[in-house]
Amino acid sequence: MKYKNRILIDRVAQHTFKLTGYLVLALLGGIFGMLLYNAISFFLEVKPLDFLTGREWNPTAATPTYGILPLIVSTTIVAFGAMVIAIPLGIGTAAYISEYASPKVKNILKPLIEMLAAIPSVVIGFLGIVLVGPKIAELTDLPNGLNALNGSLLLAIMALPTIITISEDAIHAIPKTYREGSYALGANKWETLIKITIPAAAPGIIAAVMLGLGRAIGETMTVLMATGNAALFPQDFFDSVKTITATIAIEMGEVPYQTTHYFALFAIAIVLFFMTLIANLVGEYFINRFRKYHAA
């Protein structure tokens, strides 16, 4: 090929990929701008402080209230519960697959776990209604089992494939020399795993947990089906909760266009946006803190 043509192709490729890169940025900015634009209309009618500190969300009452606090608490406790279940299980499973499982077991287990991620969220929600819910009701003597605990259990199942797969990759990527160095000092497998391999893999594991958390905070259909959606201020895991995502999904379809209620849903979407953003930033911070121990 002629030299000129090669230069040309190089240029075209460079600009094409630059364009796609910026397009993603533009999309992100566009979505945020759209949310912000609609939310501003809301904040012209409701004071931001009332919105953020209000303990009641009841936009369809005679005197509507737009307190986001119960929604934030709902989203937080469901996601927190899911992480409490999924993090130890996920890291433990990842460590087992990477360090203990025979190649044969590993080859079966890994694809199976990845298949778990392929189950549609509506099916998991279904499971929550027909299986987990009744079981919780039976064990706790509650009238029904559609509550935060149910949502946490289901979200844990949904976050597990992400946490396991990425953590396993991170643990597996730790050079053999670290493990050998540890064994040579008299450490056994467990000590090496806990004190050397997992800390060394921490950036990847935290990234895995943050992605799992992002999934748990953002998941809609499952929590909508399994948590009961009572817009009350939740007290504990056995209360019915209404998360931010479920609120938007339920109410967006029924709200009259361009009313305060309509704009309010954009405002809570922005809050959700910031919650996931903070989760990501915290993850990023820890990733950098551990990364400095690795050779550049």
Binding site: T177, Y178, G181, I196, P199, Y293
Partner: peptide
């Protein structure tokens, strides 16, 4: 070892 392997 052949390659220095200090722990992180």
């Amino acid at each position: 070892f052949q390659k220095a392997n200090p722990f992180p």
